[in-house]
């Protein structure tokens, strides 16, 4: 086993050639994931609320978005944004931004489902109580339903973030400088230690994802104690 190869390239795996060159390695992966989840949250919140709205058209639009995106492989989506968008609509986006857009659109569909399920999981009495106190439907959503629902959704959001962190590895396929690309570069250069290199980055991904998963489980247990109950 040649763990020295991993050790000698560790800085490249962690942050690429930064600060002398572009940011890469796991730092870039995390950046992609954080920016991605941020965008996906707002997109997903929007579509999730659309699915809950009274307007049939809004509901239908949101449903098509969610179903189509969730039925398509992420890799397909990445290709759409990277190869096809530019050709068909005549714009030019660098790899990083293309991948980021694909991640936002992809993860947004899952977030929309989380939002919808989270709101539906609240006891119906909450909406009634708020409407009964004279709040409009919008106000009830904004001040009573969402604050509770969003809090209960935190574990699901964290899980989604974990998925996204793993998914950022797909950005390698269109050439984004991130951890998986760093690993394949090192592997191509050194040749003799593929198992060590890929195991090492697996462990890096694992550490991030596992810590977050453990956190979301604790959170889930904690939240379970403070939920409004009953119908």
């Amino acid at each position: 086993m040649r763990w020295d190869i991993v050790y000698n390239n560790l800085d490249y795996l962690l942050w690429g050639s930064f600060p002398n060159g572009p940011l890469g390695g796991i730092a870039a992966s995390i950046m992609l994931a954080v920016l991605g989840i941020f965008g996906a949250f707002w997109l997903g919140l929007g579509f999730g609320l659309m699915r809950l709205s009274n307007s049939r058209i809004l509901r239908a639009v949101a449903m098509v978005y969610v179903e189509v995106i969730r039925g398509t492989p992420l890799l397909m989506l990445i290709f759409w944004f990277y190869f096809l968008g530019p050709v068909v609509f005549n714009y030019n986006l660098p790899e990083f931004q293309s991948a980021l857009m694909a991640f936002v659109v992809f993860t947004g569909a899952f977030v929309a489902e989380i939002v919808r399920a989270g709101v539906n999981a609240l006891p119906g009495g909450q909406m009634e109580a708020a409407r009964g106190a004279g709040l409009t439907r919008f106000q009830a959503m904004r001040y009573v339903i969402l604050p509770q629902a969003l809090r209960n959704m935190i574990p699901s959001f964290v899980n989604q973030f974990v998925s996204l962190t793993k998914d950022t590895s797909l950005a390698y396929i269109i050439g984004v400088n991130e951890l998986t690309k760093a690993a394949t570069q090192i592997n191509n250069r050194e040749v003799v230690a593929p198992a060590e290199i890929f195991l090492a980055i697996a462990v890096l991904y694992f550490l991030i994802c596992w810590v977050l998963t453990a956190f979301s489980r604790r959170m889930e247990r904690h939240l379970a104690r403070y939920q409004a109950r009953g119908r």
């Binding site: 998986t180 198992a195 890929f198 991904y205």
Partner: peptide, 17 residues
């Protein structure tokens, strides 16, 4: 908790080891 893509590379490039 590890990316599928990395696992694919691991089995493909590293299985010899």
């Amino acid at each position: 908790n590890t990316p599928l893509l990395v696992q694919i590379f691991f089995w493909y490039f590293g299985s010899e080891a």
